[in-house]
């Protein structure tokens, strides 16, 4: 792992620590206060704060997870080299596409 990847993983970990806490707290509040799916969509539709928060969340996860997974695979399997790096870029892209697609779906619902 080079210094830039190391810094990117630690920096995104800090963002994720904050984002996961907000996400879980909001989930617990929404489910325990009796809100229906319709009530939630009313609050999230066209809500730029919602979209910005989850876009940041998705991008941080898409940077953080592949760097960590790359280290795990390097240490626990014999998979090294360029093919692993390309696979992790693909995994990151998949997280970005699926995550932003989900965030936009709720934003536009």
């Amino acid at each position: 792992m080079n210094p830039v990847l190391y810094l990117a993983q630690r920096g995104t970990a800090a963002i994720l620590g904050f984002a996961v806490t907000i996400h879980l707290a909001t989930m617990i509040y929404a489910t325990r206060s009796g809100l229906t799916a319709g009530d939630i969509f009313v609050r999230t539709k066209d809500n730029w704060w919602f979209l910005s928060f989850y876009a940041l969340f998705v991008l941080a996860a898409a940077i953080h997870a592949p760097i960590g997974l790359r280290s795990v695979l390097r240490e626990w399997t014999s998979w090294h080299g360029r093919s692993l790096d390309i696979a992790m870029i693909g995994f990151s892209t998949l997280l970005v596409v699926l995550g932003l697609r989900a965030a936009f779906a709720v934003f536009l619902a």
């Binding site: 792992m1 080079n2 210094p3 990847l5 190391y6 280290s71 390097r74 090294h80």
Partner: peptide
């Protein structure tokens, strides 16, 4: 000392 064999591992 950087890289996959270095301190960041």
């Amino acid at each position: 000392v950087s890289g996959d064999a270095g301190c960041h591992s």
